[in-house]
């Protein structure tokens, strides 16, 4: 039997969840025995090259590119996991929710107390830049998500247990210490 294929991505996140994946320590050797990685910052594969079994999403959707990547994950992965608070509820980027985008941009690039060099008052407007969304969206408000692993970041043991459970089909243990929202 071929190994289950895993893909991962970081949308509007800080890569902390990915660091927590690495935090499984030497079990990473076991992991590469168990699974094969496809599109992921872990192996730097940029595009899907085959159907994927488990897609792991860090971060919510704050711009058009996040939405596009998330949709491509949904299309290419059998199972999608929202990993961490940002994917689940927007997380710290969602602190801007409720505040008009224009006001956020003004604060960041024109009016903020630490803005000094932007004398011409330019807002980022290059065509290459993705458009900001009106607010930050939890992933499950954009596509269907199958599982949720909370935490900021989720504990390495939670990630490990979830992956092992998905790969072996055994139920997850979920001890008290591993389900945390911070």
């Amino acid at each position: 039997m071929s190994k289950p294929v895993i893909a991962t991505t970081s949308l509007a996140g800080c890569f902390g969840c990915h660091m927590s994946i690495l935090d499984i320590d030497e079990r990473i050797l076991q992991l590469i025995e168990l699974v094969e990685f496809n599109k992921s910052p872990v192996d730097d594969i940029k595009t899907f090259t085959k159907p994927v079994d488990i897609g792991i999403i860090e971060g919510g959707c704050c711009n058009s590119e996040n939405v596009e990547v998330l949709r491509s994950f949904r299309k290419n992965c059998k199972i999608l996991i929202s990993l961490g608070e940002c994917a689940i509820m927007g997380g710290l980027p969602a602190l801007r929710n409720g505040i008009p985008v224009e006001e956020c941009l003004h604060e960041a690039y024109i009016g903020g107390p630490t803005v000094q060099l932007n004398k011409e008052h330019i807002l980022p407007n290059d065509d290459e830049l993705p458009m900001l969304l009106d607010r930050v969206y939890p992933c499950h408000e954009v596509v269907k998500i199958d599982y949720f692993l909370p935490g900021c970041p989720p504990r390495a043991d939670l990630i490990w247990d979830a992956l092992v459970a998905l790969i072996t089909g055994d139920p997850m243990k979920l001890p008290y210490e591993v389900v945390k929202f911070d």
């Binding site: 509820m89 409720g98 408000e141």
Partner: peptide, 12 residues
């Protein structure tokens, strides 16, 4: 063990 609320976030 609330993994995700079943209701949409209001962000008031």
């Amino acid at each position: 063990q609330m993994m995700v609320p079943r209701y949409p976030y209001d962000f008031p």
